[in-house]
């Protein structure tokens, strides 16, 4: 059962359905956004980490809608990201599209790919579907390797918006931040709207959804399309950020990372993908700094520097998920409940 904070009354349905439903959370969110806006001043050289987190959070948002809210497991999310990255590269390099047009066009292209890939999901379900998407992942990688003529990398021009060329990490960060916030808000709104209800209805009991008049094929294909659209945006950002893309960056490992992110963040929470991306990338970066520090003290560990990172990463994930299988969002929700009730136990 849900616990409502005392003394915070709602007098309209609009208030009741708000995403940030109390003054305290609105204040907290405002501070979070302010902190992110000022990030170039406090993050220093780690601004690149925020860029990475933001880009992957956008992609993970899409997968969250597909897997968390619609219940379709996809092991091919990075393939959509790849399609987005290469489309964006092509559009801006060969066709000289400005970024502000290339980005939505890219998203539209990947949306269409997503819809097509989603069509078989009416018949192929669950883990079978996961493997079908895995096949799509491999086929896409393969096609891209051959289309780009081997393992070499593709260069991507920098973003130019109205004569302003985005060159530094800090400048790029604001592009990422705007897209990130918009994408996150869009996903959170979708979840509470009729689309979100329909997705969850399809996820939890498909025959009941049919009885409610919901076309399973439409909503599954739509979920795949939206997820792919998000991945396309992430891919486009990634391409323009790195300026050099290879198919390696979007391999099966990246697809699995995406799934890990949304599970760690919390599958059925609009915050999940963001928390997951932040956690995974911060942990990975933290270990990269931490490991040499350990080596400086214990040089004997030198041989296992790289694997040590992998081991600690794995152990952290295992510990976190054993502690709270619902992910970080569930941990936060429990914390929130404690705060709401404090100083009483219930």
């Amino acid at each position: 059962m849900s616990v409502r904070p005392a003394g915070d009354f709602k007098t309209s349905y609009v208030q009741d359905m708000a995403i940030l439903d109390t003054r305290l959370y609105r204040l907290g969110f405002a501070m979070l956004v302010a902190g992110l806006l000022l990030a170039p001043w406090w993050a220093g050289r780690f601004i690149f980490l925020l860029n990475t987190i933001g880009i992957y959070a956008v992609g993970a948002c899409g997968l969250g809608l597909l897997t968390g809210f619609t219940g379709q497991i996809s092991l091919g999310h990075a393939a959509f990201m790849a399609i987005g990255a290469y489309s964006s590269a092509f559009l801006s390099q060969a066709l000289r599209f400005p970024f502000l047009i290339a980005l939505p066009v890219t998203s539209l292209i990947t949306f269409l790919f997503g819809v097509v890939v989603g069509l078989p999901s009416l018949r192929i379900k669950g883990l079978y579907l996961a493997i079908a998407t895995l096949a799509f992942q491999f086929l896409t990688e393969y096609a891209l390797i051959h289309a780009t003529g081997g393992i070499g990398s593709t260069t991507v021009p920098p973003i130019v918006i109205g004569g302003w060329t985005v060159r530094t990490d800090r400048q790029f960060y604001y592009i990422v931040l705007v897209v990130w916030l918009a994408a996150g808000a869009f996903a959170a709104n979708l979840v509470r709207s009729r689309i979100g209800l329909a997705f969850m209805a399809v996820r939890d009991r498909d025959y009941a959804a049919q009885v409610l008049g919901l076309d399973l094929l439409y909503y599954k294909a739509l979920a795949f399309g939206i997820a792919a659209g998000y991945a396309g945006i992430a891919g486009s950002l990634w391409a323009h950020y790195n300026r050099l893309i290879t198919t390696e960056q979007f391999n099966i490992g990246a697809s699995i990372d995406y799934v890990a992110m949304i599970v760690i963040g919390g599958l059925t929470s609009a915050w999940g993908p963001h928390l997951g991306s932040a956690f995974v990338w911060s942990l990975s970066q933290g270990l990269q700094i931490f490991t040499p520090a350990v080596l400086a003290v214990f040089p004997a560990f030198g041989k296992i520097a790289t694997p040590l990172r992998e081991i600690v990463f794995g152990v952290t994930l295992i510990a976190l998920l054993i502690w709270e299988p619902g992910g970080l969002a569930m941990l936060l929700r429990k914390l929130k409940r404690k705060l709401d009730l404090w100083p009483f136990a219930y």
Binding site: A260, L267, K303, P307, L308, I311, T316, I318, L321
Partner: peptide, 23 residues
């Protein structure tokens, strides 16, 4: 626990085992 959480734990287990072996 939810199936996907368990699957991701096995994935993490894979990281650990592989890390140990490489080490």
């Amino acid at each position: 626990q939810p199936l996907l959480s368990v699957i991701i734990v096995t994935l993490a287990l894979g990281y650990v085992v592989r890390g140990l072996m490489v080490g």
